[in-house]
Write a protein that binds this DNA or RNA. Structure first.
Lengths: 336, 336
DNA sequence: ACGGGATGCGGGAACGTTCCCGCAAAACAG
DNA sequence: CTGTTTTGCGGGAACGTTCCCGCATCCCGT
């Protein structure tokens, strides 16, 4: 069946020992004369030899595999992150295996198990329920995707949502809005907190009165955004602008506003967050505070590669990528 | 450093041989007395032993890895396919590693190489440039994503785009449209052909006159759709409806139409294909011929698993999943 | 001419499993 | 009670690499 040539076949054909073949396979740093190198390469070509990475991994304890655990690759936020990760580790000969945790503790645990069993070299994870200690027990380079201070021992890369939210509010403020609603998602592992912090920063900064009713919490999907917007519109004194904690909520909110007969952005401004693919498709196209998704993946990869190469600080680094305002069609000064 | 317990440590602790430990690890089908099983499991628990999948793979020549090669996971069509694949192979203990070919021949070749080197068990690929023969040379279970007859030796799963396109046209016909434009993407490996075939079927079926000018070929992106729609609108006698070969083209087309001051669907109907996430976000929301993306992944996985289990026919099967019309807001009878 | 450090290469032992073979004890048939 | 089959388990050889160690050969300075 599987009669692929091994390093030994190559050695025999080239008239050298397998050690030597191994050496030329390893490439630079190994000393072997130019002529034997040529001999070996020729034998390799003639036999169509390809090194068995499994055997290699067994011996070297390196698999050149990185696992990426996200809640759901189907969520439009993640594919770009995955792509950034992938593109960056690929030149270093790493492959990435994908896992969707679905915010499920058991699934997450299960994936960590296959990670260990398969001796993958590194992990990039947007955690659902694992703790700092859980990840420490892995003893491999790990990068956490997201924010917060729950993972002091690891490199954490994410977007500076707090600042992003603050800037989104400030943008609305500068436009002239004073009564601003805020739709935020139900805390999953508390990561929605950062936006809320941004909101509070904003209120303090401008000494705005705090009105609990302007703060609506909803499930993190389109229907949630829709529902939340209806709450806001039902207020006796409705907001002139609304910030939504992500684009999906914003899109739901936008639908609700349009259904209510509002003219956007004349009657109401809406600003989202993330800048997913669909954000540009709405009518009017959604103004949003963009996150650098691809860059997130890139940095995660960068950190992983550094740790893999052993050249990284002991302590965890954190990189909060700046958000960027993308002004499209859903924001304008409030009606006079 | 890595002092994880091995099967031998377990054996010693349980007072049995490593063969026996291996047997209980393999589970069902292996005969070992209930009491020794208990002993072994206890030792495993106490030591926190976890089997080394790499060593296992070396011996058994099975890695329990499936590679998925798509052009670009960032393209909104693919994440769902990936998810369907993943969800289906996971219960059988397979992991999936992701690769983005970017329609680049070299990248594609490179990934097939790492597939071979790493001895992955199976491949699911949306081919860019590889041939039937290339895939045959792999000697592993392979499923081709897409359509066409270029891969007679493999299981092929995709959507019945030809029929889908035909039905889309028929839907427009039934609405009353007679002059229908068609925007199709530049053939990449000729896969756009199926839609064109559907168009031709349609013309034959209704004995419509063939007008080359109604057929516009454009790059497969939003700008392409935009450009193509401008061509169609510039026609002396412009179409009352337009079919676009995928949603991204359709969204571009929709933008162009709206910019031209047309009222949708009153002045013009547009129908897309795929039903990506963003299709429902446009204004009006896009009517489209949906493809079963998740199901595509599911079936691919199904076929892969069957072949992996050795229970599959010699010859390649092909499964063309039916498309489904999703009527939203961009289609209506033509203006009187 | 001779000792000593490079340099190039081979031999064999790992790495942690699984699988084949064989042996003892237990179960069973006559 | 003997002879044969079944059952439970151990010993050791693979799987295909890499890595350590050691032995020649060669070059160079004195």
């Amino acid at each position: 069946m599987s009669n692929r040539p091994t390093i030994i076949d190559v050695a025999e054909r080239a008239g050298v020992s397998k050690s030597t073949v191994s050496r030329v396979l390893q490439g630079a740093g190994e000393r072997v004369s130019a002529e034997t190198q040529a001999l070996v390469w020729q034998a390799i070509r003639e036999l169509g030899y390809e090194r068995n990475a499994v055997a290699s991994s067994l011996r070297t304890e390196r698999t050149f595999m990185v696992m990426l655990v996200t809640p759901d690759i189907t969520n439009p936020f993640w594919p770009e992150v995955a792509r950034g990760l992938q593109d960056t580790v690929e030149p270093a000969h790493y492959s990435v295996v994908l896992a969707n945790s679905d915010w499920d503790v058991e699934r997450e645990k299960h994936f960590l198990q296959t990670l260990r069993r398969n001796r993958f070299d590194a992990l990039v994870i947007n955690p659902t329920a694992v703790s700092n200690a859980d990840l420490l027990a892995l003893h491999i380079p790990t990068v956490v995707l997201g924010v917060g201070n729950s993972f002091p021992d690891f490199d954490v890369v994410g977007s500076d949502s707090r600042r992003g939210a603050l800037e989104a509010f400030n943008y609305l403020y500068v436009l002239g809005h004073r009564r601003i609603g805020c739709i935020w998602g139900q805390h999953r592992a508390g990561w929605a907190q950062s936006r809320l912090d941004g909101y509070l920063d904003f209120q303090r900064q401008h000494s705005l009165p705090h009105d609990e009713r302007l703060l609506v919490e909803a499930p993190f999907d389109r229907a949630g955004g829709h529902w939340a917007m209806r709450q806001l519109l039902a207020l006796p004194e409705r907001p002139t602008a609304v910030f939504a904690a992500n684009d999906i909520l914003a899109i739901g909110a936008l639908e609700a506003a349009r259904e209510a007969g509002l003219n956007l952005p004349g009657d109401l401004s809406i600003i989202g967050m993330d800048d997913i693919y669909a954000a540009a498709m709405t009518t009017p196209p959604l103004t949003t505070m963009a996150k650098s998704k691809y860059e997130t993946g890139r940095w995660a990869a960068q950190y992983v590669l550094e740790r893999l190469a052993g050249q990284a600080p002991e302590s965890g680094r954190r990189r909060a990528l700046p958000c960027q305002l993308v002004v499209r069609g859903t924001t304008a000064p409030p009606a006079a």
